[in-house]
């Protein structure tokens, strides 16, 4: 249809516009204003509350925990080294979780009674244990039995926990590829493995990417829980700094902001890749 038909001076009669109140509520100005008012009320409330507690804000001390420049030269602070640990921990756990999740998903879809049973048992077990209890199980029970330290207990715990969620993402992604693709691949003589590798998996990727990103973000956030068994990472760094300085308000705000910045960057990065995979 040519654009001209939607010209600014239509031939037909103008339709009635909504009532004035409705127009005001729907406007962008109104919603931005409302948002501004609510946020400033919260910030003001927090400020007044802290003031009345007699809290001594010491924001000026925060940058030193990111990095310091002294006579010895440049040095990363505790927050930055903690962040790197967090990223290494979640990265390793995520890689393991993807492999394990794919295996569980394939077992589930294998059609073998044992495979499906095993996958469902794993899923139900993991999904119905709180992450914190799972971590205690890995650290206090499995750790001593199989001889791994707190660092590997945390990695394995996070990997297993997220593998359960990731396997469901894989299953949905694989099932989202139409049956006809399996049939076409089979009919040109491909084995099941070849069909999966060359035809099904590449097509699943665009169904997988958005929920996988969510899972990656979720992983970084849930890795904070390992601070309860004192594994060195971002949240543990925060706790350590607070026990030295009692600056709990500033530090927790800062730690929260660091997590947010990292996960936002991750989401943005993946949305760029996503656009690449959007074939049609």
């Amino acid at each position: 249809m040519p654009i001209a038909s939607v010209s600014k001076s239509p031939k037909g009669r103008a339709l009635p516009s909504p009532p004035a109140f409705r127009r005001m509520v729907d406007s962008t100005t109104f919603s931005v204003l409302l948002f501004g008012v609510v946020v400033s009320l919260i910030v003001y409330g927090a400020f007044v509350g802290a003031q009345s507690m007699g809290y001594n804000w010491q924001w000026y001390r925060i940058p030193a925990y990111f990095y310091t420049v002294t006579e010895d030269g440049f040095q990363w602070g505790e927050i930055c080294t903690g962040l790197v640990r967090t990223l290494m921990l979640s990265g390793t756990a995520f890689a393991l979780a993807v492999v394990l999740g794919l295996i569980v998903a394939l077992l589930r879809l294998s059609g073998l009674v044992v495979g499906t049973g095993l996958a469902i048992a794993f899923l139900e077990a993991i999904r119905n244990i709180p992450l914190l209890v799972l971590l205690y199980l890995f650290y206090y029970v499995l750790g001593p039995i199989f001889g791994f330290d707190r660092y590997w207990a945390s990695i394995l715990c996070l990997a297993v926990f997220h593998a359960a969620l990731i396997s469901e993402i894989f299953r949905a992604g694989i099932n989202a590829v139409p049956m006809g693709q399996w049939e076409a691949a089979t009919s040109i003589g491909m084995s099941k493995i070849q069909a999966f590798r060359y035809i099904i998996l590449p097509q699943s990727i665009r169904f997988l990417l958005p929920p996988m990103t969510g899972e990656g973000v979720h992983m970084i956030k849930s890795s904070a829980i390992v601070s309860v068994i004192a594994v060195a990472e971002l949240t543990t760094a925060g706790r350590n700094i607070i026990s030295d300085t009692y600056m709990s308000f500033e530090i927790w705000f800062t730690i929260a902001a660091v997590y947010m910045v990292v996960t936002l960057i991750l989401s943005l990065g993946v949305s760029v890749i996503e656009r690449r995979y959007a074939v049609d």
């Binding site: 691949a185 009919s187 040109i188 097509q203």
Partner: peptide, 15 residues
């Protein structure tokens, strides 16, 4: 299956 080709109603090309 290599000896026998198949053409489907819905084409089933690899998109």
């Amino acid at each position: 299956r290599q000896q026998v080709g198949m053409v489907f109603q819905q084409f089933n090309l690899f998109p």
